[in-house]
Design a protein around this nucleic acid. Structure first.
Lengths: 186, 186
DNA sequence: AAGATAAATGGACTATAGTCCGTTTATGTG
DNA sequence: CACATAAACGGACTATAGTCCATTTATCTT
């Protein structure tokens, strides 16, 4: 196994330029009102560079969400209960549901962009594996003998950004949260 | 309230031409390998006509699914139990889940196209209201006092084509079906 | 420091969804 | 049947995601 090849200086510089430009434009015009061309132009970078760096639109969204995502993951792995380890499975699952809804609702457009830019994008994101694993472990504890992995998948369906957007738009955040909680086993 | 203005003969003719052309192309090249331009060309019709008639790509998919959708709706409204009226709510819900999965899995690409062509398309389709209403009524019976409408919304999330596609691809149809069943209350 | 190498660059190019509007045509009326 | 009207038509046009590759540049080696 060779060394991990270091990232070239210009590449790193351009990544930062793009992230800054995207954050600025999204703040100013809203996530849905900004094209990839506009991001490239604002960053002073060619389109090819933008796509080489982030793969596609959802990749850019994922990069921008990275920090928030890490916070949530850290809270799950080593934060205080009930989100972190130490609480009973049912409580941890409820806490995760709440925390995840906070995350999604706090960046609705970005998360939606990260999940829907290309078909199946949601399930390919690295973090999705993490959420699903976490939920599966709790479900296995909560319902011994159940087929936890696909069940976790199904549970997470109700937390997809597109789904949450529609739910909140139609019933408001209060009822939406309660509905998701009453669906999640526990 | 005036008469419903009759559809012009050329319009009706073109609708049929487009539906036939789309069905043919989808059969030959797969739903994902056919552009709207190709459909218009095969139908011998202008692009404007195609979009005027069906609104967008998901509208075309909905039109093609119409018959199957009606069958399922008819089975729910007046077919034999447990899908139709007469069985206990829990059984009807399970039967609906199965029947809906049959429908989705039987036309996976088309249903996905109908749901994902534009953001939120799924929830705007007329039939979606029907499914949600049906599930909500059963849930209200099954869990008196619950907030049935948003809960039905959340339940249906696990039946979205995109979701089902990923679930089946990763775990196979057998486990996917069981997972959805064990999530749905009852 | 000069040269070799592989990585990064950027913008022209392609593919495709969806819009617009001047022209054509079906249909009801006198 | 001629005519008026409103509906339907179609294809050029726009917007945008994503690809390709000839050129440039950072980094490593000697």
């Amino acid at each position: 196994m060779g060394e991990p090849p270091r990232e070239r200086a210009d590449a790193a510089r351009n990544r930062l330029k793009v992230l800054a430009a995207a954050a600025k434009l999204f703040r100013e015009k809203g996530v849905d009102g900004v094209s990839m061309d506009a991001v490239a132009a604002e960053a002073g970078v060619g389109k090819g560079t933008l796509f080489r760096r982030f793969g596609d639109k959802s990749g850019l969204a994922v990069a921008l969400l990275d920090e928030r995502e890490r916070e949530l993951q850290a809270g799950i792995l080593s934060g205080p209960p009930p989100l972190g380890p130490g609480a009973p499975a049912a409580e941890r699952l409820a806490a995760f549901t709440d925390a995840y809804l906070d995350y999604v609702l706090g960046h609705l457009d970005l998360v939606r962009m990260s999940e829907t830019a290309s078909p199946g994008a949601r399930y390919r994101i690295g973090a999705y594996r993490f959420w699903r694993r976490h939920v599966a472990i709790l479900l296995a504890e909560l319902r011994p003998g159940c087929d936890a992995d696909p069940l976790a998948h199904a549970v997470l369906a109700s937390l997809a950004a597109e789904q949450v957007t529609a739910l909140v738009a139609e019933y408001g955040e209060e009822r939406a949260r309660k509905a998701v909680h009453s669906l999640v086993p526990g």
